[in-house]
Simulated scan of single mutants.
Amino acid sequence: MIKCIAIDDEPHALRQLAEYIEAVPYLSLERAFESAIEACTFLNENEVDLIFADINMPDISGIDFAKSLSKQVKIVFITAHSEFAYEGFQLDAADYLLKPVSFTDFLKSANKVNERYFRQNTSLPEILQNRDYLFIKSEYRIIRINFRDIKYIESKREYVKIFLDNQNPITSLMSMSKLEEYLPDTMFMRVHRSFIVNLEKITVVERNRIVFDNKVYIPISENFGDKFQEYMDKGFIKK
């Protein structure tokens, strides 16, 4: 595993960066920081392999931060200002990403850095299926997920988030379409381009959306609405 930290003073950008790191199987997010000073304190007491850092930060610039690092730690600079690229590479940066960073660009960078400096094994199978459950690759682990525990699945473009009963969501780097192939169609249905639901978990439907726990609303799109309505009709009591 490649131990990573993320640094960005913009909360939204930091959350996105953390999600990207957690979606890559061979990367392990140790901490995320909005302050380079806090990151420096953490690094004084902890070892990491790779840092994803914004260059333009208010307390310490990413350039000055990089100058303080040991040579063993690799850094990927992230910034909205392309003019900083040359100075970043002068510091022997592992790579450079220009904001806004897509997951595709992030993954290309992570793969390049991995191949060049770490060579972590990425050949684990993404999905192993059994009749009542499946094993899925998430971060550096293979996790068993029982079908009955899945509430719904959300697509995040290049990766998916699987929401479970009384557990934290599980993120895996794969497409929704690929995962859908492994789910029993008697139990699961795609109701939107971005959502698959466990039919057995549905208790409330209102205004063309499925409600989970009175706070999560899953939209039912026109493309999938007819099939879902057929399912619903089977359960209606006829007058």
Rank of each mutant, 00 (worst) to 15 (best):
L27W: 08
E158M: 13
I202M: 07
E154D: 13
S194M: 03
C40T: 14
Q129S: 12
P219D: 06
S123R: 02
V76Y: 08
Q120S: 15
T122F: 06
N146K: 10
S82E: 15
S221Q: 11
S70C: 05
P184Q: 12
R31P: 04
E19T: 09
V73S: 07
A110R: 02
I142L: 15
M174P: 01
V160R: 07
I196C: 10
Q72C: 05
F236A: 14
T203L: 12
T171H: 03
K178Y: 11
M232F: 14
A32C: 05
I143G: 02
Q90I: 02
A93V: 02
Q129F: 01
L164G: 06
H81S: 10
S82T: 01
F33C: 13
F224W: 06
I5H: 05
R157M: 04
Y26M: 06
S61K: 11
D233Y: 09
R148P: 07
L98M: 07
D92A: 09
N214Q: 11
D8P: 03
L164I: 02
K74S: 08
G235K: 11
T104A: 15
R15V: 08
F163Y: 14
R190V: 00
R31G: 03
A18D: 06
S123C: 03
D213M: 06
K67F: 05
R207N: 15
T186V: 02
S175A: 08
V216I: 09
G235L: 14
L128F: 00
I60W: 07
F84E: 15
S28Q: 08
Q167F: 12
G88Y: 01
P184R: 12
S35V: 01
D185V: 10
E34P: 02
Y152K: 05
I78S: 10
S172A: 07
S61E: 13
D95C: 05
Y231I: 11
E87K: 06
I21P: 02
I210V: 08
M176C: 06
L173C: 12
S102G: 03
V76G: 10
S28P: 00
I237E: 15
I210Y: 04
N111D: 14
I2Y: 03
M1S: 11
K112M: 11
L27P: 05
N198W: 00
F77T: 10
Y231C: 15
E126F: 00
F236T: 12
E83D: 11
L97W: 10
D233P: 00
I162A: 05
R141K: 13
S28T: 00
L134F: 08
P219R: 04
E200K: 05
V24R: 12
R131A: 01
R141G: 04
K156D: 13
E30P: 00
A13E: 13
V76P: 09
F236W: 12
N168P: 01
S28M: 02
S172P: 00
K161H: 09
K108Q: 15
S155M: 14
E83Q: 10
S138V: 05
A85N: 02
I127P: 07
A93K: 01
P219V: 06
D132H: 08
Q129E: 12
M189N: 03
S194H: 01
Q16I: 07
R141I: 00
I150S: 13
N130G: 07
E10L: 10
A94D: 15
L179V: 01
D105C: 02
I220S: 08
S102F: 00
Q167T: 09
D185E: 14
D49T: 04
